[in-house]
Amino acid sequence: MTGAEVRNFAVAIVLFALAALIPLTGSGYWLSIGVSIATYMVLSTSWALFSGPTHYISLATGAFYGIGMYVVGLGIEILPYPVLLLIAAVLGAALAALVGLATLRLSGVYFVIFTLGLAELIRQLVNWGQTTQGSSSGLYVLTDISEPMIYWQLLGLGAIVYLLGWWINRSRLGFALRIIGNDEVVAVHSGINTASAKIILFVVSGTVATVTGALLAPRLSYIESSIAFSPMLSFLVVIMALLGGAHRLWGPIIGVVPFMLVWDLVTAKFPNQTTLVLGICFLLIVYAIPHGLAGLVEKYRARARGAF
C-alpha cells in the first residue's frame, strides 16, 4: 500500500466511526436522515461501481431493492432474518446475471430501457401473483429491529461496498472495465471477455441493491408494491451518483450527502414539485457539471498544483 492509500484508509475509518455515532445523539431527525443518506450511499456507490467505468446507465436499482423488500416481507414469519438477507442476495445476483446476459452485449440504450421497465414489470408480476393468490395488496413486516440497528447494518454494508470497490479498482477486473469504458473494440482485441466483466460488476451492484432493500424492509412496517418498486428510487440513485462523480469510488458519497439534505427540504416544502426539481437536476448535471463534484474537485486540485 502506498502512503496516500494508508492516509485514505485512515480518513475513511474516522469518517465511518463518526457516522456510526449518529444514533447515539438521540435525535430522531438526524437518525432518519442518516438512514436515508446511508441507504443512498450504498446504492449510488454500488451503482457507480458498474456504471462509472462502463457508462451503462442502470435504472434497475428499484427492481432489486423491491425484491429485497419482498423477500423479507414474505419470509419474516417463517425464516430467521439473516437467512432472508442471504436469500435476497442470491435472488438479486441471479436476476442481475440474467438481465446482464440478455442485455449487456447490446448498446446502452437497450439497457436503459430494459432496466427502466424491469421494476414496473416485476411490480406487475407481484401484483398479479398476489391477486391470483387472493391475498391482500401489501405485506406486514413486524420485527424488533430498531432504526439504529438498520442504520448500523447499512453502514456495515457501505464499508463492504467500499472495500470491494477498492479491491476491484486495483484488480485486473477493474482495469478491464476501464479499458471497456474507453474502447470496447480495443478491450476485446486485448483479450478481455467484455460480456463477463460487465456481468460480474452488474451482479455485484444488483446484489448490493437487493440486500439494501432487505435491510430497509423492517423500517416500513407495511410493504406495498408501489413503494417497494418505486421508479423514483432508481432515478435518485443515478442523479446522486452522477452529481458526485461516478468515475471515482469516493465520488457518489459527496453527491449523496448534499443532495439528500436539499432533497429532504424539497420534499417537505414542495411535495408536488419533486419531479420538476429532479428534471432540473438532471439537466444541471449534464450541462453544468458533466464529471460531477469529484470532477470539479480534481480540476481545482490540478489547477492548484499548477499554480505552485
Binding site: S107, N272, L276, L278, G279, F282
Partner: peptide
Amino acid sequence: QGQLEVDSILSTFGISFIFVGVMHAIFGG
C-alpha cells in the same frame, strides 16, 4: 457516439421530468 448516447439519455430524462412537473403543476395529479 457512446458519450452522446449517455448525455442524451440523461438530458432527455431531465426534459421528460420537467414536462411531467409542469403538467402536474397545471393539471394536477
